[in-house]
Write a protein that binds this DNA or RNA. Structure first.
Lengths: 235, 235
DNA sequence: TTTTATACTTGCGAAATCGCATATTTTTAA
DNA sequence: TTAAAAATATGCGATTTCGCAAGTATAAAA
C-alpha cells in the first residue's frame, strides 16, 4: 500500500490541511509516514517514548488509560481527522494508549518537524489550542458525570457518546465493533453491570441487543435519562 | 489599588512574561485590566459570555462545574501563574465557574488582543499547547481515578492534590481555606462520607483535624493508599 | 461576650453496586 | 460444519456507599 500524499488526501477534517500553508503541507507530506493498524492493534502504547504525533486519516480508535492492576479506563473515542499522541507534548513518554477498534489508517509526523510547523504556521497552533480546549471541556464534563451519575445514567451516556462519535449503520446499530468490556471501561464498572443495564434498556424499548451489536431504538429516551445533569444556557 | 505593570510584576510563572517578546509584554500591560477577588467570589461564572482570558497573578482558586441539580464538581485547583477561562476558547460561553478560595489578584486580557498576541508570539502558542496537554493528562488521570478508586482512596488523593497545589504552612496544615464540602466536590460524594473518612485517617495517624484545618502528618501514608493505581515507567 | 448561623460528626437503616458462580449465547478457529 | 474459546446474561449474597436525623463543635455576627 502506497502512502497517500497530503495534497491528494480527501480527509477534510485534517488539521494539517485545514491550517497549514501549501508549502508546509507539501513538506509534511514528504516526510510523514503512514501505517495501517488492524482491529485491536495498539497505535500508541502507554509508557513508550514520545516521538511525534499521529493523525487519523481514516479509522475508529479508543484512547485508554491503564492502571497497575490492569483495569482500563476509556478516556475518549476518536475517528477521522482526530489527533493521537498530542498529550505526549512536553513529555518523555506517552501517558495513555490508543487502540484501533477497526482497521485504521494513520499518519505520523516526527517531533522535530512538528516544532518547525508550529513556529511557521501560527494558525495551526491556534486551531490546535481550540481543539485542546474542546477536549478539556468534554473530559471535564465527563469527569463530572462519572462522579455524579448513577450506573443507569452512565451507561446511557456511554451509548450516546459512541453514537455521537461513530454514528449508526443502516440497521441503526452502533457503527463500531465493541464489547461489553469497552462500555464497562468507559463507565468505570464491570461487564456484569453493563449486561444487566443493557437488558433493562432493552425491556424499556430504548435499545435492542443483536448479539454483540446494539441497536439504538430511542435516542431521545437515552438523552432523557441523563438530561437532568445538563445545563442549557439561554442564548 | 493601582494596576501592576507586567514589566514590574514579579510572578515568574506567568505565560505572558515567559513566552512573549518585550514589545508585546508592554502592549498587554497597557491594555490588560486587573481585579481583586475576595474569598468565595466568582471570578468566572458558568454560562457567561467569553470575553477573554484571566491570568492569576497571586491567589488560590477552584474551578467548578455545576450540575442542574446544583451539585458541584471541582475540576481542578489553580494558583499563581495559572490561566482561567482558557476552556472558553472557541466557545461563546464559559462551561465552568472559577471561585477564589482566598483573596486573589487576577489579570484579564480581552479576546481581540489575545488573537493578535498568539499570531505574533508563536512561542506563547507552543507554551500554551504544552500547558493544555499537561492539563489534559492530569484530568484524564483524575477521571480514571474517580472511576476506579474507592472512597478511601479518592479522599487520600484529594488531600494530596490540594497539598501539591497549595502546599502546607509552618504548622503543616493545608495552606488554603476549604470546607468538607470542597473535598466532597473534588471526590464526587457528600460531606458525611468525607467526615467519616477524615476521622478514619486521623485514627490511622495520617492526618490531624484542627477544626476546619487539616494537618498532614504522613504524606507517604496517603501516597501508599493510592499507589496501586499508579504506573511508573522505567526511565 | 453572647447569640446565631454554619459547618462538622456519627449512628443507622436503605439502596446501589460489586463480584463470584454458573448457564447460555455468540464468535472464532479448526 | 463442528469444536473450542470467548463473550454475555443472570441469580444472589457481600460490601460499599448513601442519606436522613440528631447532636456537637466551630466560626461569624450582634
Amino acid at each position: 500500500m502506497r502512502k497517500t500524499s497530503c495534497e491528494l488526501c480527501t480527509n477534510v477534517n485534517c488539521f494539517v490541511k485545514m491550517y497549514c500553508s501549501p508549502e508546509w503541507i507539501h513538506k509534511i507530506s514528504l516526510s510523514k509516514s503512514q501505517v495501517y493498524f488492524k482491529q485491536n492493534q495498539e497505535i500508541i502504547k502507554e509508557g513508550e517514548l514520545v516521538l511525534g504525533m499521529f493523525f487519523i486519516q481514516q479509522g475508529k480508535v479508543k484512547v485508554v488509560s491503564t492502571g497497575l492492576d490492569g483495569r482500563q479506563q476509556i478516556v475518549r473515542f476518536a475517528n477521522d481527522g482526530h489527533i493521537l499522541g498530542h498529550r505526549g507534548l512536553g513529555y518523555e513518554r506517552y501517558p495513555i494508549s490508543a487502540v484501533a477498534m477497526e482497521g485504521s489508517l494513520v499518519c505520523f509526523v516526527v517531533n522535530d518537524l512538528l516544532s518547525e510547523v508550529f513556529m511557521a504556521n501560527p494558525k495551526l497552533s491556534m486551531g490546535l489550542m481550540v481543539f485542546y480546549s474542546r477536549e478539556l471541556r468534554k473530559i471535564e464534563t465527563r469527569m463530572k458525570n462519572i462522579a455524579h451519575m448513577n450506573l443507569r445514567e452512565k451507561v446511557a451516556e456511554a451509548l450516546l457518546l459512541m453514537m455521537e462519535m461513530f454514528g449508526l449503520n443502516k440497521e441503526h446499530e452502533l457503527n463500531v465493533p465493541f464489547t461489553r468490556e469497552d462500555i464497562a471501561s468507559t463507565v468505570g464498572t464491570n461487564v456484569e453491570q453493563i449486561s444487566r443495564q443493557l437488558t433493562e434498556f432493552e425491556s424499556a424499548k430504548l435499545i435492542q441487543k443483536r448479539g454483540r451489536k446494539v441497536v439504538i431504538l430511542k435516542k431521545a429516551g437515552l438523552e432523557h435519562i441523563i438530561s437532568k445533569h445538563f445545563m442549557q444556557y439561554a442564548k
